[in-house]
Design a protein around this nucleic acid. Structure first.
Length: 165
DNA sequence: GCGACAG
DNA sequence: ATCTTGTCGC
C-alpha cells in the first residue's frame, strides 16, 4: 500500500453536528473533495458509521450511494449496534444491528479501545474487515484515515478556525 | 427508565 | 469536534 494522491476542500459547514444527521454536515465538503481526485479509488473508507446507524444507513453508506462506490465506515466508537468487546490484540468481534451482523469491533492495539468497522455500501461483512486490516500500519487507525485526519488538522490551522469539513 | 449519542 | 503539556515508546 502506498500513498497516491490527496485533495482538499475548504468550506464552512452549513449544518450543525447532530448525531443521526451527520450527512447534512459533512456531505457537501466530502463530495467536493472527492470530485477533485484525479485517480478515482475503487473504494472509500469513511470516518463515520456505515450500516450500523439508526436508519441503517450512516454517512459512509450515504456517500457510497451518491458516488455509486463501495465504502466502509470506520469510527473510534460505536454509535449503535451490539457487540462483545474484543480483549486480545488483533481480536475481532462481530457487531450486530437490526438482527444482522453489519460490522466488527477490532482490537487493533493492546491498551486502546477497539475500532468500529462497518459495511458502508457495496461491501461484504468479510471484505470490510479484510480491507480494514490490510490498511493498518503501525497505528490504531487505518493509514488512509489517519493521513486524511492529520491533513485535515493541518489545513484547518492554515486557514484559521472558520469551522470546516 | 435514563443517559449517551458517528465528527 | 474541541480544550491542551508533557510524556512515553519505537
Amino acid at each position: 500500500m502506498e500513498f497516491v494522491e490527496r485533495t482538499v476542500h475548504i468550506g464552512k459547514a452549513s449544518f450543525p453536528y447532530i448525531p443521526g444527521f451527520f450527512s447534512f454536515r459533512e456531505g457537501e465538503g466530502t463530495i467536493r473533495a472527492y470530485q477533485k481526485i484525479s485517480h478515482k479509488p475503487d473504494l472509500l473508507i469513511i470516518n463515520a458509521c456505515g450500516t450500523t446507524h439508526p436508519a441503517s444507513a450512516g454517512f459512509a453508506s450515504h456517500i457510497g450511494v451518491i458516488l455509486d462506490k463501495p465504502t466502509i465506515g470506520i469510527t473510534k466508537r460505536m454509535f449503535c449496534g451490539r457487540a462483545k468487546i474484543p480483549q486480545k490484540e488483533k481480536e475481532a468481534q462481530p457487531l450486530y444491528h437490526g438482527g444482522k451482523q453489519k460490522g466488527w469491533l477490532l482490537k487493533v492495539l493492546p491498551e486502546t479501545k477497539p475500532i468500529v468497522i462497518t459495511i458502508g455500501h457495496l461491501t461484504s461483512i468479510k471484505s470490510c474487515l479484510e480491507i480494514a486490516i490490510k490498511c493498518l500500519k503501525e497505528n490504531k487507525m487505518p493509514e488512509p484515515l489517519r493521513l486524511a485526519h492529520q491533513c485535515a488538522g493541518k489545513e484547518k490551522k492554515k486557514w484559521g478556525k472558520s469551522d470546516g469539513t
